[in-house]
């Protein structure tokens, strides 16, 4: 057997049995698991019973907004005066209310009132109010199909053509094309840092233990270094594999439990989406050309 290979096996075996290596390899997944547990605990402590339906009041000074009061999970309640709406809000009869002023058509301004402390209205509320306004504005003025297009005018599918043949080429998942190199690069940097530390430790130990001269009487310096670098590099790769498996498993579990992560699904990773294609339009959801097709957690189990 090649002597560098013997040294490789020896170094790999010795490194993976080091306490520092085991601690480092296991600590990253443990931190991830702990983070998820902490999140779950905090969520459990802060969890409020979900409202079955949100009630939003409005005061219409234009007289144009009388229909489409029932939307997905929201009911719009018309008030004739702001005082009544305000009274119901303070009495917690409604969750919030907004006023459509007389000059709405000229300015597009809508004034919203809420008792909640917030930086800005949530995207869900903005979208629901926007749809309510749009439905009423275009009612009886256009077809349903045109209304949908006004609501969602762009469903962009980008395809790449081959520069010479002009044929459509299969472009990689843009998200994986951007993030996967970053993730792998980061992991490799970590690995190189740690394994170079192990190499330094290994060489200094051999010098300290005075074994180096015995080794050099059996192998050349080049073989010794090659065996060490490859062996410790293999240990670093093993560490990366452990971390990657952890990331995938963690992401799978986390996406089922943490809503934010379900949108950042790991379907973007090549491990779980070998054949990405632009996603079809989804009703009620804006679709950006750069967005990865939202993938349910179940995509990981396939």
């Amino acid at each position: 057997m090649n002597k560098a290979l013997i040294i490789l096996k020896h170094e790999l075996g010795q490194t993976v049995r080091r306490k520092s290596f085991i601690h480092l390899t296991v600590s990253i997944p443990l931190i991830a698991i702990l983070g998820m547990l902490v999140y779950q605990i905090i969520q459990g402590m802060e969890a409020e019973p979900e409202k079955e339906e949100e009630r939003i009041g409005y005061v219409d000074a234009t007289g144009m907004f009388n229909d489409y009061k029932e939307a997905d999970g929201i009911t719009f309640i018309h008030y004739s005066t702001q005082d009544k709406a305000k009274g119901d809000l303070l009495a917690e009869e409604i969750d919030e209310y907004f006023i459509i002023p007389e000059n709405y058509l000229a300015t597009g301004q809508v004034i919203r009132y809420t008792t909640e402390r917030e930086l800005q209205a949530s995207s869900k509320i903005r979208q629901q109010i926007s749809e309510f306004l749009l439905n009423n504005l275009l009612d009886d003025k256009t077809s349903e199909e045109l209304l949908q297009r006004v609501k969602q005018p762009l469903n962009l599918a980008s395809l790449q053509l081959d520069e010479t043949t002009g044929e459509i080429t299969e472009s990689p998942n843009p998200v994986s094309a951007i993030f996967v190199p970053y993730i792998f690069g980061l992991l490799f940097i970590f690995s190189i840092f740690f394994t170079s530390g192990y190499l330094l430790q290994s060489v200094s130990e051999e010098k300290e233990n005075r074994v180096i001269e015995i080794l050099l009487s059996s192998v050349s310096a080049r073989q010794l270094l090659a065996g060490k670098v490859l062996g410790l590099g293999a240990a670093g790769l093993l560490q990366i594999v452990v971390w990657l498996v952890t990331i995938v498993v963690f992401a799978k579990v986390a996406s089922m439990n943490i809503p934010v992560l379900s949108d950042l699904s790991v379907c973007c990773l090549p491990l779980s989406s070998p054949g990405w294609a632009p996603s079809p339009a989804q009703p009620g959801r804006a679709n950006s050309g750069l967005a990865c097709s939202p993938c349910p957690p179940s995509c990981l189990s396939s």
Binding site: M1, K3, I6, I7, H10, Q14, E205, E206, E208, N209, R210, V211, E213, I214, L215, S217, S218, V219
Partner: peptide, 29 residues
Amino acid sequence: KDKIGYLPEERGLYRKVTVAELLGYLARL
């Protein structure tokens, strides 16, 4: 080199490796 046994003046052994492992490793080298 494989036919030479060498005991250097400055000599030592791996401290965290068992005797059997160490001797096996050096023999394989």
